[in-house]
Design a protein around this nucleic acid. Structure first.
Lengths: 333, 333
DNA sequence: CCTTGGCCTGACAACGATGTCACGATTTGA
DNA sequence: TCAAATCGTGACATCGTTGTCAGGCCAAGG
């Protein structure tokens, strides 16, 4: 900037004025400055500016998701980016693989970089550690999973309701021996989906004992192995509810391996790519990650713009997509 | 920081020393400082530090990919992140949907934030606009597509070779009437894949006229429509090479719709999720985005560490995965 | 012709940190 | 016991930018 000022033969402040489009500069002077800036390929340093500027905004957002390499998280990320880009806000995305320690490290890294706001998927038991940052005024919005130990905005899918709908869908086809394949219990959404499953059973008057609940699954492989064991048991399930993406894929593999894909009903939570091209098509409870990401970002920006209304828990509905696998009736075996 | 210094009853510099673990501070003093820092929930401002520090590193990387919501790009992103995280480097990812204007805007935004290095997928005709930044010493590595108009490091798949292999694979099953479904010609990889396809035909002594080349496809829908038209023509292809992810999926849909999935051979470029669970399984030339991302990030860090060897074009091989669709022989129709 | 009031412009301090250097206290060695 | 060396510490300038403010210039008005 000093070089630009010297080349244009003006003071530093005038360069600053021209760069930022502030009024009160003669067109001729402005012209000299822009020419000099172009000649030197000058790019202003936003960090130095932010340091001095009064609003102390860095124009960055921290986004914590399970992994950037994951369709659900990718869709959330894209939606956040699309909401942020028009405001000139850049997004730091961090994958933390649902590891509570990496969550805390990532959040600290975000804070040291003075992000203007945080959009977090959490896997810690309590997020009370964010308290000081909240007091400092940083907007924080949770996505996918609700916070605990602290009162903050959240944008989540209706997990229990979606799971209940999926379960009722299977029960309506006459199934009674259901299997629930779920993720690690420390994950809040996994607990919610399990609750929805059990409540649906309860409403149908089916004793919980008739259902098999397998939890702590977190890989395609693990899910496949778990379902293989169930299928090989003396009293295999006639319908399966797989409560997560990877688990659904693992379940499909297990059913295929035992040749049971056409006679065992399956509904998955969260949509899966190409699910409609499989035979049978996979019926799923689809979430709407684009909506979740967009709403979360809007919430952060609203808070930054001064919205200090009470924290809200925004629930995004799910959509049951019938593709065949979920409509297989009891008695096809 | 001033508050911490005051609370601990020490000078600013001593706080700085303790925070950065510099030697020469009495344990007792250090203790007072850390206590004060904890009591005030002090987090140092990395930007202010970087401003003064001699190496001028911000600990950030700019990553430009077609979209964060895209499996190939997501895998690259994850690999870059995994290479960057251990060094305390955070990644800005930008989606630009292959739009040259958004590419330039995103790069400028990265530069204003003083990223330490850039990893770019490009869709501009020439990247000469990066010249000034290169002179300034910022390491830039291209991924997926090679640069033109400027000499810089690049990490790419062996597009022509992979495409040729896929084509030869189809020819070996007796097919002669092949269709090539490709992306927009302004994309370098699309041109390379087309070249590989045509060269394989040439080597087999097949007149180019026998093949149908459809380009400028960039959506699943467009690919499907294009293949539907070919299938409905008087002389439909007996084998299809789809040169990109979405195009492959569109092609599968078209084949299904005309009931030709089991008698028309198909090989896709770039792997597709669940491809092995379809009937038939989809044979693909798989790329290795994790390797591409990792190598690109390592290259950037090597440059930052002072490696000034000549620029290199690193080619990551592809893998032909046979799953059924590509092994359908001529005469199944 | 001299004020007065706008309009441009630049000097200067400040943002939050770190590199440099000098100072006083302590330890070491003669 | 005293000089020299060592050690811990803080004052100060500085990084690149912007907010504040004062000053110079010119046109309008008395």
């Amino acid at each position: 900037m000093r070089q630009v000022a010297k080349l244009a033969g003006v003071g530093l402040k005038t360069v600053s004025r021209v760069i930022n489009g502030e009024p009160g500069v003669t067109p001729a002077t402005a012209r000299r400055v822009t020419d000099a800036a172009r000649a030197l390929d000058y790019q202003p340093d936003v960090h130095a500016g932010n340091l001095r500027r009064s609003d102390r905004r860095t124009g960055t957002l921290g986004l914590l998701i399970s992994s950037v390499d994951n369709p659900f998280a990718g869709a959330v990320h894209r939606a956040v980016e699309d909401a942020a880009a028009p405001r000139g806000v850049a997004v730091f995305a961090s994958s933390f693989d649902d590891d509570p320690n990496r969550e805390r490290e990532a959040v600290i890294a975000f804070l040291r970089r003075r992000v203007d706001g945080l959009i977090l998927t959490t896997s810690t038991a309590s997020q009370a550690y964010l308290e000081p940052e909240v007091r400092r005024g940083t907007p924080i919005v949770f996505v996918d999973r609700e916070p605990s130990g602290i009162d903050l905005d959240a944008v989540v899918s209706d997990n229990a309701e979606g799971a209940a709908r999926a379960t009722a869908h299977l029960l309506a086809r006459g199934h009674r021996r259901l299997a629930y394949l779920g993720d690690r219990r420390e994950i809040q959404t996994a607990r919610e989906r399990r609750r929805g499953f059990l409540e649906a059973l309860g409403r149908a008057g089916i004793p919980t004992g008739e259902a098999t609940v397998v939890e702590e699954l977190h890989s395609e492989r693990g899910a496949r192995d778990a379902l293989l064991r169930l299928l090989d048991s003396p009293d295999p399930p006639t319908a399966v509810f797989s409560a997560q993406n990877l688990i659904t894929v693992g379940a499909i593999r297990a059913l295929r391996e035992r040749g049971r894909a056409l006679d065992t009903a399956l509904v998955g939570f969260d949509d899966v790519d190409l699910a409609d091209l499989l035979e049978p098509g996979i019926t799923v409870v689809a979430q709407h990650p684009e909506d979740i990401g967009r709403i979360a970002a809007e919430r952060v920006f609203a808070r930054l713009d001064g919205d200090d209304s009470p924290t809200r828990r925004i629930v995004v509905g799910t959509t049951l997509i019938e593709r065949g696998s979920g409509e297989i009736p009891l008695g096809s075996q």
